[in-house]
């Protein structure tokens, strides 16, 4: 019963989006927007084609590398800045400032520094994702309840026990929220990077399709990426909620 209730909202939303899509198709015509069903069929045939797979792999690899850098480096830097109060205070406004810059304007600079191809995409994706991870981790580490640390010290925990029993459980929920936001932004950055000056990957296919006005392919790729984004996000959000509930109890 609860499954039905939690699923009802998203299902209704999906259904209304599909109806809106179909209506928009009726109104705008085939040259602007293919109908939902033919688009999905087109996506299916595209996935079956051999030349499609390398593009997906390219984008996937770029995204995974960018994500790994953003997550690992982000948590590392965040822990350091959170642990050392003065450096945290120095760095925080700079990071917030960087976070609110339109980073897309910096993409040509990244291209000049890293050259065309994979490294530039990875760098641009990581650049988008890393700052929220650092900010969230920093605030999580800074806000660890001092009483926990004192309790740990009075029980003479070893540094390993301290990290495993106290620090990680206390900071994980907030850090995970940062990782979740970092995930979305890394995907955005990687995709933006592929749209501009790229020779492979889903973004490149998308740009080629836009140049050729191949509406079915444009929409098929958009649907594919959106599906991935929504599914991944839903999973991360569910984990996030569970962690938060666990920490509150």
């Amino acid at each position: 019963m609860t499954a039905v209730r939690t699923l009802r909202g998203p299902l209704l939303l999906t259904a209304s989006l599909l109806v809106a899509w179909q209506l928009l198709h009726q109104w705008a015509g085939d040259t602007a927007l293919t109908a939902p069903l033919p688009t999905l069929e087109h996506l299916w045939t595209m996935i079956g084609q051999k030349r499609f797979v390398p593009h997906v792999t390219e984008t996937g690899l770029a995204f995974l590398q960018a994500l790994a850098i953003a997550w690992i480096a982000g948590v590392g830097v965040g822990v350091l800045l959170g642990g050392h109060r003065l450096s945290g205070e120095v760095a925080e406004p700079i990071l917030v400032g960087l976070y609110s810059l339109p980073k897309i304007t910096l993409y040509p600079v990244i291209l000049l520094l890293f050259g065309l191809g994979m490294p530039a995409k990875v760098a641009f994706g990581a650049l988008h994702g890393i700052i929220p991870v650092v900010l969230f981790t920093m605030s999580a580490v800074r806000n660890v309840n001092r009483t926990y640390l004192r309790a740990g010290r009075s029980m003479r925990l070893t540094p390993m026990q301290m990290a495993w029993r106290i620090l990680i459980p206390a900071t994980l929920p907030e850090i995970f929220s940062g990782l979740r936001i970092g995930f979305s932004l890394t995907l955005l950055g990687t995709m933006l990077g592929e749209l501009f000056a790229s020779q492979r990957g889903l973004g490149f296919l998308l740009m080629t399709a836009i140049d050729l006005n191949d509406v079915a392919t444009i929409l098929a790729i958009a649907v594919l990426i959106s599906l991935f984004a929504v599914v991944a996000n839903t999973i991360l959000l569910a984990i996030d909620r569970r962690l938060r509930r666990g920490s509150a109890a």
């Binding site: 909202g9 998203p10 995907l187």
Partner: peptide, 25 residues
Amino acid sequence: RAVDPFLAAYYSLPHFAFYPLLIVI
């Protein structure tokens, strides 16, 4: 409640893919 998951995933959608559609409209 219905829109929430959509909002949460919104910023990972490839908005620029919808640009041709916007040009036609």
